[in-house]
Design a protein around this nucleic acid. Structure first.
Lengths: 215, 215
DNA sequence: CCTACCGATCGGTAGG
DNA sequence: CCTACCGATCGGTAGG
């Protein structure tokens, strides 16, 4: 019982530290120091640095989903829920939920050129997240809020990209307009999808290229 | 003369290594090992790890500008040049110019929560780059390719965000469609700007907010 | 959960 | 550009 509480306190701190220093920059010695416990005492909870990293990713995932995704599920499916997810993500950045900005943005760019279990765990969480955005777009199509030719994977790609851009501008440039810019970009894009049916040359950019190659 | 050649070889390798391992993960020992020279021999070229990091950022900046930005300057100013810059960036990712993906995307997300000279150098290069995109948009407005109410800073924000998203999808997800998706996103957005004048509620998202604040 | 310790590697230095 | 070395810190272990 007390062991679990300690473990939880370690991981909460580890997630914040890793959002600043990176998952490789996260060291057992520093973590122990800041939590005022011995290195070996902390180490015993995990058995290896990799296990500590994986446990930190898991706690960060729970925090992320609780803060960003779950609240949006209370909104009605389709366009309103998609908007709630996007607003939720922007709020999450503005509230500085992790002290170094979005944990998964940092982790993604730290591990995108590597291999191994840590990279796989980050990718899995990101797949889950981007998949959730994609599903929200698909529901908006199903509900008739978007035209039937809207491509959920394309829109999810774009929304996720805007999130990365907002995280960058907010944390690196300390630009408070980052949130407004991101929201404007998303709103403009999503409102455009509601004007269906759009002219054919704008409706299906992906398929147009595919066709060109096929011919 | 030979000293400069060695220095250049070190930094070329350092930029690739840092794009995978991060600028903190870049260690003098490993770099010396891979270049088959002694640690102290390599170290003597820079005097400190921080100087090595700063020199690596500078060489990466030169590579980036040579590969992405300079070729686009041959295209006529305005919309064509802006498109050339975007295509140049996507080509640069597809050609794997740095082995771990875009050096500056990785460096930006590694250092966005820190302070100090290394962070400042990364930010400065990114400011230069985003400023270049912004200028290209402004020229497109000046040339009459875009409507007069297009906001260069907003569009530069969005294009840079799409680049981050493409870098993520290409390197983490190994998704070859990343380039197509990014291009589709950019093309759709830019083509939309040419349909000026657009209805007022879509034309000026940023200024709309600014006006609201001013009143 | 602790003290005490391990070999390896870190950034950096002395001296040539 | 090298060999030889420094103190500090790394992840991890022994033993309690």
């Amino acid at each position: 019982m007390k062991g679990l509480k300690t473990r939880s306190a370690i991981l909460d701190h580890a997630a914040d530290l890793a959002s600043v220093e990176g998952l490789e920059g996260l060291t057992i010695g520093r973590l122990a120091d800041e939590l005022q416990m011995s290195k070996s005492g902390l180490f015993a909870h995990f058995g290896s640095k990799e296990e500590l990293q994986l446990a930190t990713i898991e706690i960060a995932r729970e925090r992320f989903m609780t803060e960003v995704f779950k609240p949006a599920l209370g909104t009605e499916r389709g366009y309103p829920r998609l908007v709630a997810i996007c607003r939720g993500w922007l709020d999450y950045i503005q509230r500085n939920v992790f002290s170094g900005g979005c944990f998964f943005a940092a982790a993604s760019f730290e591990f995108d050129g590597r291999s191994g279990p840590v990279r796989d765990a980050i990718k899995k969480t990101m797949d889950e997240w981007i998949g959730a955005i994609e599903k929200a777009v698909r529901l908006a199509v199903d509900e008739g809020h978007f035209g039937p030719d809207v491509e959920p994977a394309q829109i999810a790609f774009e929304i996720n990209a805007i999130f990365f851009g907002a995280n960058y501008a907010y944390n690196m440039r300390h630009d408070k307009r980052a949130i407004t810019r991101a929201w404007n970009a998303i709103e403009t894009r999503l409102e455009g999808l509601r004007q269906s049916p759009r002219p054919a040359r704008f409706a299906h950019p992906e398929k147009r290229v595919a066709r060109r190659r096929a011919s």
